[in-house]
């Protein structure tokens, strides 16, 4: 029993020592800032992604893009960022050895819920895409329901134009008579 426990512990330790996360193994690392955001619907926020070249060689033609996933219970789905105005991928021409590049992704928050945002970097010389940690985004629901504002205009204006229409028609008729 002791022997097998010792064996298992040794195997686990060996795996742990040999395990290197993809980002650490890669010559590129990416981080996202801020790590968490709480905002209201309609707000505009900006995510900053920092791409670091950990190698001694310059890297070129790296593509970075942001992804957003809805993690609200029952609504789990990746989001189409075009609606959130953050669909633009950034092409980084070159990052010098041990240098960094800072990209910005402004985003308009158009729906409420719990989301996670992360930035992915794709280097054509690397088979593994590198993603940042996830930034948690909580968006509070604000409905712009204001029928009290729109009703006077929506009802009043056609009526007003209708009255002008009737006045013109009446004047014309009386002129003809």
């Amino acid at each position: 029993m002791k022997k097998s426990s010792l064996l298992l512990s040794t195997i686990f330790l060996a795996i742990l020592v040999n395990y290197v996360p993809a980002s650490a193994a890669s010559r590129v690392a990416v981080s996202i800032d801020p790590p968490s955001v709480q905002a209201n619907m309609g707000d505009k926020i900006t995510y900053t992604g920092t791409i670091t070249n950990n190698s001694g060689k310059a890297i070129d033609n790296v593509i970075a893009y942001i992804s957003l996933a809805n993690v609200t219970q029952g609504k789990e789905a990746p989001m189409d960022l075009e609606d959130w105005s953050a669909n633009k991928a950034i092409k980084v021409d070159a990052i010098p050895p041990h240098g960094t590049y800072e990209g910005k992704w402004p985003m308009r928050l158009i729906d409420s819920g719990s989301y996670v945002a992360y930035i992915t970097v794709v280097d054509k010389n690397d088979n593994i895409p590198i993603s940042s940690m996830m930034s948690h985004l909580e968006i509070k629901r604000i409905l712009r329901l204001n029928p009290n504002n729109v009703l006077p205009v929506a009802l009043g204006e056609p009526v007003l134009i209708g009255i002008v229409f009737m006045v013109i028609a009446f004047k014309r008729r009386s002129r003809v008579k």
Binding site: G42, R108, I110, R144, L145, N146, P147, N149, V150, A154
Partner: peptide, 30 residues
């Protein structure tokens, strides 16, 4: 000629009422 303007205001009334009262459309940013 004035019918154009009545129609214009009716269409604009419908559109703006929908924008500001429909829960789906009102999710849109102002």
């Amino acid at each position: 000629g004035f019918l154009w303007y009545i129609l214009t205001s009716i269409i604009l009334s419908i559109l703006s009422y929908l924008f500001l009262t429909n829960s789906e459309l009102s999710l849109l940013d102002q």
